[in-house]
């Protein structure tokens, strides 16, 4: 079955100019690529290659200096900040490098946070959150705060939070960076399974070889350009 293009990136550039200076740095330089629905994509490259910048632009957290990002036939440049926030809420899930759970909420409350913002009824989101945590091996830990969970457990909660909102796309920025190799590998396998079962497009920014090996599509960046 032919997959549809869910994200279309056309000639994206991101230029940073230092304050009170004419010095410009191109974090991204005319990037063009299409990402298919349900794909498991790794954007790899050394530090400073532009991986996170590209991910942030796809995730509508940052604006490109030039070029266009189209998600499900909607150009991000046509949306207002409020509409971009809405897009993030409804279509994009985030798994950050540093888990970034809300420290005052329990694992369960963190997991259901985005579903709460979407307006999912309490009983439904609670049920789904508990189920998601159980699937991720966190049964009986739902009432613990992030400070009481290990790094791997916190990352699983972050994944549960991203998935529960039923996004089309999940953007994961170095999700295994703070995990041991075994835990990291388990999590990637879990996400790959979710991608397959739920038809979610996963896009990773990573320099972890294990993640690159497990990806269906590998995009390599260097100095803001796609080299492979």
């Amino acid at each position: 079955m032919q997959k549809q293009t869910i994200i279309s990136i056309k000639d994206i550039s991101k230029i940073y100019r230092e304050k009170n200076s004419r010095v410009e740095t191109a974090a991204l330089d005319r990037i063009t690529l299409d990402i298919q629905e349900g794909d498991f994509v790794a954007i790899a490259g050394p530090s400073g290659s532009g991986k996170t910048t590209l991910l942030n632009i796809i995730g509508a957290l940052d604006n490109a200096t030039s070029g266009e990002v189209i998600i499900e036939n909607i150009s991000l440049s046509t949306l207002s900040p409020s509409q971009l926030a809405d897009l993030r809420l409804k279509k994009i899930g985030f798994v950050f490098q540093a888990y970034n759970l809300i420290p005052t909420l329990t694992a369960l409350e963190n997991a259901e946070y985005v579903a709460l913002l979407q307006g999912m009824p309490k009983n439904e989101r609670r049920k789904e959150a508990l189920s998601a945590l159980k699937d991720l091996g966190l049964a009986n830990l739902e009432n613990r705060k992030p400070g009481e969970l290990s790094a791997g457990q916190q990352q699983r909660v972050a994944i549960a939070r991203a998935i529960l909102a039923k996004p089309k796309i999940v953007l994961a920025d170095e999700p295994t960076a703070n995990l041991d190799s075994k835990t990291g590998s388990e999590l990637i396998d879990l996400m790959k399974l979710m991608s397959k079962n739920l038809n979610i497009t996963f896009i990773f920014a990573t320099h972890d070889k294990m993640v690159m090996e497990k990806a269906q599509t590998l995009i390599q960046l260097h100095d803001g350009k796609i080299i492979a």
């Binding site: 926030a85 950050f96 913002l117």
Partner: peptide
């Protein structure tokens, strides 16, 4: 600040 950034990134108004 970081926590608020995450909340806003996730879609909090």
């Amino acid at each position: 600040t970081r926590e608020f950034g995450i909340m806003l990134a996730l879609g909090t108004k």
